[in-house]
Amino acid sequence: MQRDLVERARRGDHDAFSELAGAAISRLDSAAWLILRDPEQAADAVQNALVRAWRDLPTLRDPGRFDAWLHRLLVRSCIDEVRRLRRHRIDVPLIALDAPTNVDHLSTIADRDQLERGFVRLDPEMRAVIVLHHYLDLSLSDVAVTLGIPIGTVKSRLHRAIGLMRAALDADARAGREISEGRPA
């Protein structure tokens, strides 16, 4: 029962917190990676979020809202990481040269590459909205609650982020067509 663990951790039970952290760290790490696109920054953000969670857990008013609260701490830590380091490093996944070369697979890889290119062009705040809504499957209301912003801001930020990604994908598609037709990109 998570509530029991949260209540015990609020009272200073570190074993209870270890269980909570162990259950959450995979989800947090994946979300941080998606927002930051840097494994080291993601690990730092998760560490900082969990340390803040432990430190401030006694002040959590409603133990039932532990997950939303933890997500908020994580997003704040991610934004802090970006601001602290002021660097943008993009890890480009390498495609094995001997990978099967059927058309569907290449199409899928191209699709993923396009999505990633569009995604990394977004600022971390926009990526956070997308990750919370499309990866953690939070409702728009819960995203608003998690980020502490009005639901209208969530909607506009999500709309703008999706619009930017689609524009990037359309630009990629146009460039691809122009190359295949022998025109300069």
Partner: peptide, 13 residues
């Protein structure tokens, strides 16, 4: 894509 991109990440920290 988000789910595929995050698959296999095993936090070791």
């Amino acid at each position: 894509w988000l789910r595929e991109d995050s698959v296999g990440r095993v936090p070791a920290h």
